[in-house]
Design a protein around this nucleic acid. Structure first.
Length: 360
DNA sequence: GGTAGACCTGGACGC
DNA sequence: GCGTCCAGGTCTACC
């Protein structure tokens, strides 16, 4: 028997805008339906996998979220599901925290949520995963690779190693499951390439107690822990370099560091008009966002995201199956690609999908 | 401390 | 349809 419950949200929280605010909303097992403004994904709970469908009735900021599961959930499981969704949607970041961000970067204050005195738009909450483990693996699968490959890796990880829900969806694999996986299987069935051993080792570190050398999630998430200590600790993990460490920090709610990559360079050159070599542009990017201090990443990301939305329409209208195409590097270039390049990209994406279907 | 090259996959493009 | 080149961040060896 299906279950249904609600989750309260901050008064300025708007599901379609705040959920569709970071690229991971396009990665399995997450699924967004633009027609119904519904988020669907499988969550791994103590009683097994469950597919949940999350909507915000009336599409009104501050309205409680309606959650429907594809099976009966115990009270404990409902609590677990609420905690997973709360982390994912950053519901822990209240109105005051967003107002503090807008105080240093007023560009995102426009628009009206239903917040109390001096209402703000509520912009500034970027979605993430229900668990830190999923965030770390998603970050590793996004390094040194183009977006369509990241999409493939995440989908295959779920299909090969994820638990299945009653309605047939796949959960993101647990650390326990991936820690037992053979690197060769990861490579051949999930196309993760040289990341195979690193993913297994990361999974193993998530299963170990901190006292035995495992990852101390509570310490990483504790606001008392200094940013620099967190960064150094992340850099010691396999497959985590400066970019990945900064990205995981923002996923932990630490926004002072910038995960600058090739996309940032493009943003610096084409949107901000910076010239010079890579090092010079990176330096100017750091200078540009330095005034936003503890909120630097939010300013950086909202700028970047606004650029994507100018080109492709609001993120909540994006179709998951088409984004692999939309984010093919050539199609994101400022100069429109030629007809041939566009056709080739489409053909390649289609061929890849067919090959994957055959394999499956 | 800085730099070069390997790692792997799939998109881009020429033939 | 095939072959070649290239993008992408991390890691290691070397200077």
């Amino acid at each position: 028997m299906p279950s249904r419950f609600t989750i309260a949200v901050p008064s300025d929280y708007l599901l379609r805008r705040d959920y569709c605010s970071y690229g991971y909303f396009l990665l399995a097992p997450n699924h967004w339906e633009p027609e119904t403004l519904a988020l669907t994904r499988v969550l791994g709970l103590e009683g097994g996998a469950v597919t949940v469908r999350v909507t915000q009735p009336g599409d009104k900021a501050g309205s409680p979220l309606r959650v429907e599961g594809d099976r009966q959930l115990s009270a404990g499981e409902r609590g677990q599901a609420s905690a997973h969704l709360g982390r994912m949607l950053r519901l822990d970041e209240g109105y005051e925290q967003i107002r503090a961000f807008h105080a240093v970067d007023p560009r995102w204050r426009r628009g009206r949520g239903r917040g109390g005195g001096g209402a703000t738009s509520g912009r500034g909450r970027m979605m993430r995963s229900p668990t830190l483990f999923e965030d770390v693996i998603k970050t590793v699968t996004s390094c040194n690779v183009t977006w369509p490959s990241t999409v493939t890796m995440n989908r295959r990880l779920c299909e090969v190693f994820g638990a299945r829900s009653a309605s047939g969806g796949w959960a993101f694999p647990t650390a326990q499951r991936l820690s037992r996986a053979r690197p060769q299987t990861l490579r051949s069935q999930c196309s993760v390439g040289y990341r195979d051993g690193r993913i297994v080792e990361l999974a193993r570190l998530f299963t170990l107690a901190p006292a035995r050398g495992g990852i101390d999630e509570a310490w990483l998430a504790d606001p008392v822990t200094p940013d620099e200590a967190v960064r150094e600790s992340l850099l010691e993990l396999p497959g985590i370099g400066p970019y990945a460490a900064a990205n995981i920090m923002q996923l932990l709610g630490r926004y002072s560091r910038l995960p600058l990559d090739s996309e940032s360079l493009r943003h610096g050159r084409t949107v901000l008009g910076y010239t010079g070599n890579e090092r010079q542009v990176m330096k100017r990017l750091h200078e540009h966002y330095a005034p936003f201090g503890a909120h630097a990443f939010r300013s950086y990301w909202l700028e970047l995201w606004a650029h994507y939305e100018r080109k492709n329409g609001p993120a909540w209208t994006w179709r998951q199956e088409k984004t692999a195409k939309a984010f093919v590097a050539a199609l994101m270039k400022e100069k429109a690609p030629g007809k041939r390049a566009e056709k080739t990209a489409e053909r390649t994406v289609e061929r890849t999908a067919e090959k994957r279907a055959e394999k499956a």
